[in-house]
């Protein structure tokens, strides 16, 4: 999705909440054998967009670690920067934020645009089961300095 002006945080929040509805429907369709392999609800979902043209927006949800994170994202991981491994429950790539950022960075790369992780605007992260906002985890705040 491309547009001529950047998304606002409120717009990203609304997109994130709408995304949760589609995630829940995907799980139901999967369980009755209609579609896909999304058997369980992801814990958290978030939407993000680029602050620079072409103002792409992407959505992401928590899932198992990214196998091949975008190089820009990988370079900003705390363990890449400091040589330490985060605690098990906040391991890099588990959260919704890096998944959304990974998709966005890939889309930008395909458009021959380069952005930094600090150029990514995130909406609120929402818990999928009840749509309540959740705080960004410590690993995400280290990976994306704008979340501090």
């Amino acid at each position: 999705m491309t547009r001529n002006r950047p998304y606002t945080k409120q717009q990203l929040d609304r997109i994130g909440l709408a995304y949760i509805g589609s995630l829940i429907n995907n799980v139901r369709r999967c369980r009755i054998g209609q579609h896909g392999n999304a058997w369980d609800y992801p814990a958290v979902a978030v939407a993000c967009s680029s602050n620079k043209t072409p103002f792409y927006m992407r959505k992401g949800h928590s899932c198992e670690s990214l196998r091949n994170p975008h190089p820009t994202l990988f370079a900003s991981y705390p363990s890449t920067k400091k040589g330490t491994t985060p605690k098990r429950y906040t391991r890099e790539g588990h959260c919704a934020e890096p998944h959304a950022a990974h998709k966005l960075l890939n889309a930008m790369t395909k458009s021959n645009k380069t952005i930094l992780v600090s150029d990514i605007l995130f909406g609120k992260a929402f818990r999928v089961i009840d749509c309540s906002p959740v705080a960004y985890c410590s690993t995400c705040r280290k990976t994306f300095p704008q979340l501090k």
């Binding site: 369980d40 609800y41 992801p42 814990a43 928590s62 098990r88 391991r91």
Partner: peptide
């Protein structure tokens, strides 16, 4: 279920 999957999903049990 793998531990990474458990940590990132809400599973109905």
């Amino acid at each position: 279920y793998r531990s990474g999957y458990i940590q990132t999903h809400c599973i109905d049990i």
